[in-house]
Design a protein around this nucleic acid. Structure first.
Length: 814
RNA sequence: GCGAGAGUGGCGGAAUGGCAGACGCGCCGGACUUAGGAUCCGGUGCCGCAAGGCGUGGGGGUUCAAAUCCCCCCUCUCGCACCA
């Protein structure tokens, strides 16, 4: 063992040695309990990993290593979410082929993770852009199609006429194209593929109750799904009884107060019902609404506007004709694109009615008998008034009564509406997973023919030029050899789908692939999946709260329904790591020049010191700003451990007979460290280790003894794997410390014999008593009343009341 | 605007109703030293010589006891954009 701790010397050595020993290879072993820890697989970018990424990977590595030592068979894999826009943009702008850049960037990520000491089983590395992987993404798409969960529909996409291509939301900046910054984007309607995630809305909602996820994430999913109960009703258009306006409401009890209707400007009825006299103003409003939606997020606090169509609807409850308006605050994408206006009970309707001088009937009164406020809507539940057969009913009863009446008279029914919409999974992009569909020219039903499984994968063709097709189709439309094919059924001429799948398709099942990453007969080997899945601990950023985590949950449920797997939730336990901002408080980014790389920190301090600082600088799940100054502290800590072990070894590694006090401290340190690692409290786990070190370094080697020395190094192993390995060898062991068992503590030895009991008088601490642990209230009281400090502060007053908290505190009220 | 989270020494943070500031950074002092940006030892919330008092964004409340629970306000961060 060298005198000085020199990470530059030991880290490369052990890296090579671990690789030679294939130390992190994982195999199924039914005899041992399994633990599957997974980080959300990263998109390999050219910027490489920053120290911010390691704030996720290092703690997960600690958990993986710890669980392995604690007796679990641990699966801790890594792969690359490799399809995506940045690689395609680089291809477009710099002519670099995405598969080359992605391969290079992934290799760099892997190198950075390796030098950081992360124990991944690299034999299970996957890449979502490799045909061996996306073959099965395509297979899943076909599964969804066969189950009626994938369908074609029309959707509007951002469009730049100068690029001749669709744009992602992030490519639209201030309403203009990212490349043509003074060219306003428009919307283009395209036929696209959708996934019917709405069929799973209720299950996605209900099953949230049974999983261990951060509450804010669950809440975001609940809000995203946005379930609301109500009724769908319909009113006929006056003088045009073949046409009706269907609408959803959560307050069917207020139908007698409906004094107008509002349609979304895009509503298909608008053109048909508009009266000739109003046509000009309606068309102008519709055009204006369309233009406004094109100029991104111009004004978020604008007033409610609308125009009258000149048409009327017949309120079947009041038998009155009510005006039909259009307004841009009604969205075509939610509900039916039409709402009833009940201005007395809805604040938004109230503002609209006030502005345009519409009638404001009051049909709900406060339950306490006071009149509804005159200057605003009364939105709370109450007692129904002015409402025919509903008068006197509570809001809840009136809702039921309206639903029953509507069903009997065939004008509506109770229903549930969801805010969540179906998942638009088509992308008009090159660098994605091809959709395994062909369109046969000789067939009806749009000629949709799924590619037979045995013909998968549909390979993404190599291209030289990634210019957009100009038509709204993906660049793949420019490759005739790809597009033109034959129908798998009739053999006649057919064209391939040229859209590719959203990257979220790849990430909706990758956690299963790690169980059997090289299996080539199915997406996964059922036996391996049954052993490893579900994921025991899933870790990633809160930014994936809704999309990725909902899609992956839905696909898992589809797999369960298809009897491919035996579980319904892929991630029973989820945690979010805290975001690490740059020292300047901004996102770390190449353009700001504030990226700190692990490479630079490892060069300066060594990987172990960096790892310890990642663990120590802040709680795992809380955001923090990067601050390099503390690494000096973790580096110094490692040096002190090193010196302690070196002195111990140089003294001949004496077996020693530690004092009871030392023994108790070791066991207590072990207990706290263990408990805190289990709870993912790495910063306080390390603090407990430092505390223990501060005690142990005061001892001579034979006072410390072999048990303490070895337990200490073993405990350090998950956090600082290189230094621990080197010290373990110096302690005379031939095999790796990472194959050792986690040391067990003796609970008896972690018990305190004496405790400090605080004495408070009227809420202020006046004395501290050392008493035997478990002392009775009487004993402590007696002791306290003898105390000089207590008597001085009691100042002759008689205690009125004592409150005793065992082993902690005696509170005296005087 | 709505929703979620956060606010504690000079700094990162600890304490989840029971000793505020664990552990570390920085700083101050000392030892060793030709030397120290190394190492080791001690100190370090604020006021005060002390006894003691004050102190967890601000204000109020509950409690024997509040950083922690409740109400109001301020600031910051993240998410969502009129969801009928």
């Amino acid at each position: 063992m060298d005198e000085r701790y020199d990470p530059k010397k030991i880290e490369p050595y052990w890296q090579a040695e671990w690789q030679r020993q294939d130390l992190y290879r994982t195999r199924e072993d039914p005899a041992r309990p399994k633990f599957y820890v997974l980080e959300m697989f990263p998109y390999p970018s050219g910027a490489g990993l920053s120290v911010g990424h390691l704030h996720n990977y290092v703690p997960c590595d600690v958990i993986g290593r710890y669980k392995r030592m604690a007796g679990f068979n641990v699966l801790h894999p890594m792969g690359w979410d490799a399809f995506g826009l940045p690689a395609e943009n680089e291809a477009l702008l710099r002519g670099l082929h995405p598969s080359e850049t992605v391969t290079r960037y992934a290799a760099n990520f892997k190198r950075q993770l390796t030098i950081s000491g992360c124990a991944y089983d690299w034999s299970r590395e996957i890449n979502s852009s490799s045909p061996e992987y996306y073959e099965w993404t395509q297979w899943f798409f076909l599964l969804l199609y066969k189950r009626g969960l994938a369908y074609r529909g029309t959707g509007a996409q951002w469009w730049c006429d100068l690029c001749g291509s669709v744009l992602a939301n992030e490519q639209v900046i201030n309403g203009c194209c990212w490349r043509h910054t003074d060219n306003p984007v428009t919307k283009k309607d395209l036929e696209q593929w959708y996934i019917k995630i709405t069929d799973y809305a209720d299950r996605l909602l209900e099953d949230l109750d049974a999983i261990d996820w951060p509450e804010p994430i669950k809440l975001m999913q609940r809000n995203w799904i946005g379930r609301s109960e109500g009724a769908e009703l319909s009113f006929p258009v006056a003088n045009n009884p073949t046409r009706e306006i269907r609408f959803f409401t959560t307050r069917p009890d207020t139908v007698f107060g409906v004094s107008f209707m509002v349609l979304a400007p895009e509503h298909p009825l608008v053109a048909e019902i508009t009266a000739p006299a109003e046509r000009a103003s309606v068309e102008a409003y519709v055009a204006d609404a369309r233009r406004q939606s094109e100029i991104e997020r111009m004004s978020t606090v604008k007033e409610k506007t609308g125009v009258f169509t000149g048409a009327y609807a017949h309120n079947v409850f009041t038998n009155k004709d009510i005006p039909i308006w259009i307004a841009d605050y009604v969205l075509m994408g939610y509900g039916t694109g039409a709402i009833m206006g009940a201005p007395g009970q809805d604040q938004r309707d109230f503002e609209f009615a006030t502005r345009y001088g519409l009638e404001i009937p009051r049909v709900t009164a406060p339950a306490d008998g006071t009149p509804p406020p005159a200057d605003r809507a009364f939105v709370d539940p109450g007692i129904t008034i002015n409402s025919g057969f509903l008068i006197g009913m509570t809001t809840a009863d009136a809702i039921n009564a309206v639903c029953r009446w509507a069903e009997q008279h065939k004008v509506g029914r109770p229903t549930i509406s969801y805010r969540m919409r179906d998942w638009l999974i088509s992308r008009q992009r090159y660098w994605g997973c091809p959709i395994p569909i062909v369109y046969c020219k000789g067939k009806g039903n749009d000629g949709i023919v799924p590619v037979p499984e045995e013909q998968l994968p549909v390979l993404l063709p190599a291209m030289k030029d990634y210019q957009p097709s100009g038509t709204g189709r993906s660049p793949l439309a420019n490759v005739p050899e790809f597009v033109n094919t034959t129908c798998p059924i009739c053999g006649g001429p057919a064209e391939r789908e040229t859209d590719t799948l959203d990257g979220f398709a790849c990430s909706s099942w990758y956690f299963l692939r790690f169980a059997s990453p090289h299996y080539d007969r199915a997406p996964f080997d059922r036996r391996a999946a049954d052993y490893w899945l579900p994921v025991d601990l899933y870790v990633g950023g809160a930014e994936h709260a809704v999309m990725h985590l909902l899609y992956a949950r839905m696909w898992t449920k589809v797999m369960f329904d298809s009897e491919l797997i035996g579980f319904q939730e892929p991630f029973p336990m989820l945690r979010n790591q805290g975001q690490v901002w740059a020292a300047d408080g901004h996102r770390m980014s190449k353009s700001r020049g504030n990226v700190v790389t692990p490479d630079a920190m490892i060069e300066k301090y060594g990987a172990d010191a960096l790892r310890l600082w990642e663990l120590f600088m802040s709680p795992f799940d809380e955001a923090t700003n990067w601050n390099e100054s503390g690494i000096a502290g973790t580096e110094r800590y490692l040096m002190r451990v090193w010196t302690m072990i070196r002195r111990f070894v140089e003294a001949g590694s004496p077996a020693g007979a530690p004092s009871l006090d030392t023994l108790k401290r070791v066991h207590k340190g072990l207990r706290i460290t263990t408990e805190h690692i289990e709870r993912l409290r790495f910063n306080t786990a390390l603090a407990a280790m430092m505390d223990l070190l501060n005690h142990l370094t005061k001892l001579k080697p034979d006072e410390m003894g072999r048990f303490a020395a070895e337990a200490y190094v073993t405990m350090l192993a998950p956090m600082a794997p290189y230094a621990a390995e080197e010290m373990w060898r110096a302690l005379g062991h031939a095999s790796s410390v990472h194959l050792e068992s986690w040391p067990q503590y003796d609970a008896e030895l972690t018990r305190e014999e004496t405790v400090t009991v605080v004495v408070q008088i009227n809420g202020k601490v006046r004395d501290r008593l050392q008493v035997a642990s478990g002392a009775s209230e009487e004993q402590v009281r007696e002791l306290a009343l003898k105390s000089e400090a207590v008597n001085r502060h009691l100042d002759g007053k008689t205690p009125k009341k004592f409150i005793y908290v065992q082993d902690k505190m005696l509170s005296i009220v005087a």
